[in-house]
Design a protein around this nucleic acid. Sequence first.
DNA 1: GCCTGTGAACTCGTTCACAGCC
DNA 2: GGCTGTGAACGAGTTCACAGGC
Lengths: 221, 221
Amino acid sequence: MPHLKRDFNVNTISELTVARLSIYLRCVEELQRLGIETISSQALAKRYHLNSAQIRKDLAYFGEFGVRGMGYNVSELRQYLIEILGLSRERRIVIVGAGNLGIALCHYSRFTGESFLVVGILDSNASKIGESTPAGLLVESVSRLPEIVHQREAEIGVITTPGESAQGVCNLMVEAGLKAILNFAPVQIKAPDGVLLRSVDLRVHLEELSFFLTHGIPDSG
Amino acid sequence: MPHLKRDFNVNTISELTVARLSIYLRCVEELQRLGIETISSQALAKRYHLNSAQIRKDLAYFGEFGVRGMGYNVSELRQYLIEILGLSRERRIVIVGAGNLGIALCHYSRFTGESFLVVGILDSNASKIGESTPAGLLVESVSRLPEIVHQREAEIGVITTPGESAQGVCNLMVEAGLKAILNFAPVQIKAPDGVLLRSVDLRVHLEELSFFLTHGIPDSG
DNA sequence: GCCTGTGAACTCGTTCACAGCC
DNA sequence: GGCTGTGAACGAGTTCACAGGC
């Protein structure tokens, strides 16, 4: 009988495991579109260049989803992953920084199904405020952040400002009550305990590529 | 006497180390702007929420840059990092996928100093080809990829297509001779040995935030 | 005294390999 | 027979702690 654990301790779960759950979700969504109903960890690993033992271990933190001798039921596994990742209800996002990247991310809701919705894009530059984005949102003043977070029930803040403003915006987001922040500015910023801050630094990724172009590509990437 | 090793073995260097070098570069660039001439690994760690032993170890793979009792000379360290990361010459980028993200990334050259230059943005959608982006590039046909890579001496490919097309575009990039690829499509793709493929999946990051919003934020993030 | 560079200790994450179940 | 779930073995990455140099 497959079942979901409800008593796991978040502190024992590695962030790497969580990131992979998200990848597994993407995979089973494709399998479902393809009409595949059941898959073993080995078949899943082979198809998506993953490791079967790791898939089993990652999933086992959260319950017993498989059937021995059979593998995993695709649509069932998808439901479990959605449940585990907390995607069964919508998460609302506020973006601060109406530059090219911020505006591009406004469209992001489209690609993430029902799970994420951008409910505001804010900027401090008076000349941008009032402009409407191609996604149909109006750029609002960053001074309205607390009110917007509260009224529109935003939970996630996204920082797409230049580096200089990032820490300040992060502080404002924390004050406004956001508990999860995604930072795209290429600086090391800090949020207090109890607030989850994740940074995505495009410069780091490009510079990594440059490093390996310069010194040679390591075996079997 | 500070000096740079020239004989390190790329296979012994972890990708995590390389990513941190890029972060250190960002830090010393700020220190230089602030007019700080010398910094110890401890001071650097404290200021940017890093670990001092790790800084020393990461740097030590590549040479001896510090002076005992003193620390590191900021502008010297910056030069060494630029050298190590292969940023002393320009790297040219071709983007495939002229959606919002692809177009936003065209502007990216601006934020990365002299090191990276976007030399083309390509799409397969006939209605987009010929359009000019706000960054001043014309969208060209993806069928011209090989010729563009060759003529404009591109080294890095960036994939900003929908998931379905990503593996195909990756294959084309490999055939065209690109050795470093940055993928933004939310799918697991594969490149052959000898080609470095790095994926940045925004959905994964958002879903991670969702997971921790649902189950609680772990101690001291 | 302060600070780097580095072996040694440790922690964390991955992979193996198999008992147990279908 | 096939496959999951999992302890045990392994390996990678981080942190400690100190010898040696300024």
